[in-house]
């Protein structure tokens, strides 16, 4: 309870909507740049890394609702749990100085990506019939053609796409954390 209170200072409450807007603004910017990444959890990872796992989880959770409310990607709400876990993991990596070295942040991103892929696959496979209505469906078709079942094909698609995306996301946040003055970072920290 104490930790929860410390993580949700007024500064955190104003940070979270900004982080959600970053998810959406950067997510759409990256889509227009036509790079095979999403970066649509970058704000969530930022909150986790700056404040802690609870604040990260809440950011991911609420970001899914906001994606749905804007009508840009209403299916986002189905992956609300995965979004929360990504934020929680970004916060959990604060212990054990994962955020100190650039290569450690990339490693943390890869781990988060694999976990996200494994958790997302059953939702796509069982709720949406194996598709997400986006470009990655082509990969699912490819893996189905190699003989994998629907869950396997969705997991394989996730393991191909998600770890790279999360590694880039975590690396960018690592660079941001380095650029921020320590005094400012200390004010966000929920430790």
């Amino acid at each position: 309870m104490d930790r929860l209170k410390r993580e949700f200072s007024t500064l955190t409450i104003v940070l979270i909507p900004v982080a959600i807007a970053l998810n959406i603004a950067i997510g759409t910017l990256v889509l227009n740049l036509k790079v095979p990444l999403y970066l649509d959890s970058i704000g969530t990872v930022l909150v986790g890394a700056l404040v802690g796992p609870w604040a990260g989880a809440v950011t991911g959770f609420l970001a899914s609702f906001v994606w749905t409310l804007t009508g840009l990607f209403p299916q986002a709400i189905a992956w609300v749990g995965v979004a929360a876990i990504i934020g929680a993991l970004a916060g959990a990596f604060r212990s054990g100085d994962w955020w100190e070295k650039w290569w450690k942040s990339i490693l943390a991103g890869l781990i988060t990506g694999v976990i996200a892929a494994i958790l997302s696959a059953p939702i796509a496979a069982y709720v949406f019939g194996g598709v997400t209505g986006s470009g990655t469906d082509a990969l699912v078709a490819l893996f189905r053609a190699t003989g994998l079942d629907m869950l396997g094909a969705n997991m394989a698609q996730g393991v191909v796409s998600d770890p790279i995306d999360k590694a880039v996301t975590f690396f960018i946040i690592w660079a941001i954390l380095r650029a921020l003055p320590g005094r400012l970072k200390a004010r966000f920290s929920g430790d």
């Binding site: 409450i13 104003v14 979270i16 909507p17 900004v18 959600i20 807007a21 970053l22 959406i24 603004a25 759409t28 910017l29 609420l62 970001a63 609702f65 906001v66 409310l69 804007t70």
Partner: peptide
């Protein structure tokens, strides 16, 4: 507050 603020500032961020 978080959800409504996020909705309001998205256009500005974009």
């Amino acid at each position: 507050y978080i959800i409504l603020t996020a909705l309001q500032i998205i256009p500005r961020f974009q």
